[in-house]
């Protein structure tokens, strides 16, 4: 079993498109993946939910900038964590504080920051 704490970068938090990408990615792996949301103080204390369930992930109510703990157990657990970390760490196109300026080649309105 392996686990990792990751900050949720997309503006939408773990909702909408980022959440569905996250769940899809979790479904691509055979290992069991769970997610734990932080409590009010930022400790990872909540009840773990199944990362391959949209209902479960939605129930966490994780917003932008919060940190979740992702736990994987089984085949290719580390690969699964890598892929899920990638989803959580990648801002979406159109997010204001996108830090991937060098990749998206400045098609934003004013290229600030």
């Amino acid at each position: 079993m392996t686990e990792r704490v990751v900050e949720v970068v997309p503006e939408a938090g773990l909702h909408a498109r980022p959440a569905s990408k996250f769940v899809q990615t979790a479904n691509e792996y055979d290992c069991e993946v769970q997610v734990v949301a932080p409590d009010g103080e930022g400790n990872q204390e909540g009840e773990p939910v199944d990362a391959s369930s949209m209902l479960g992930v939605t129930s966490l109510g994780v917003g932008h900038g919060e940190r979740v703990k992702v736990i994987a157990d089984g085949e290719n657990a580390v690969d699964a964590l890598d892929a899920l970390e990638e989803v959580l760490s990648t801002p979406e196109a159109g997010d204001e504080d996108s830090e991937n300026g060098e990749e998206s080649g400045g098609d934003g309105p004013d290229g600030e920051g």
Binding site: G13, H15, V49, L55, G56, T58, S59, L60, G61, G63
Partner: peptide, 16 residues
């Protein structure tokens, strides 16, 4: 406020 996300997550949590 994040009312909609709180309602969404509370509802999802109970529906599990």
């Amino acid at each position: 406020s994040d009312d909609h996300l709180e309602i969404l997550s509370s509802l999802s949590r109970s529906l599990m």
